[in-house]
Design a binder for these strands. Structure first.
Length: 99
DNA sequence: AAGTTGACGAAAT
DNA sequence: AATTTCGCCAACT
């Protein structure tokens, strides 16, 4: 069981309509490698629901905000308008998934 | 083989 | 409250 497999397993475990922060995923693995989680998504994220893993504060991954938004709307993930560059932010208070 | 980089986060200044 | 530093792990140079 490599770190990569563990990350993918956790992400695959996130139910539709819920999200988790990079830090949460790392913490679930018993590590603080939030950064490494991002790398795993960048390299292997194509096979999982990468949009369900967001940055702390509920901000979508930079550069992928538009694609992620489509998925959120399709899954019914509560979003809330924001003045950031991304234009929106995820409502973690109501859709943050906890194992 | 060794050093740098990166979809990051939290703690320390 | 805002910056800076550090920790963590895999891929890339």
């Amino acid at each position: 069981m490599s770190f990569v497999d563990a990350v993918l397993a956790v992400v695959a475990d996130i139910p539709s309509g819920c999200v988790m922060t990079y830090g949460d995923v790392a913490a679930l693995l018993g590590s603080r490698a939030a950064r490494a989680v991002g790398q795993v998504m960048a390299r292997y994220g194509s096979d999982v629901a990468w949009w369900r893993v967001v940055r702390a504060g509920g901000r979508p991954p930079p550069g992928y905000a538009d694609r992620a938004r489509e998925h959120y709307e399709a899954e019914g993930t509560p979003l809330r308008p924001s003045s950031d560059d991304d234009g929106y932010r995820i409502d973690l208070a109501s859709c943050r998934w906890r194992p």
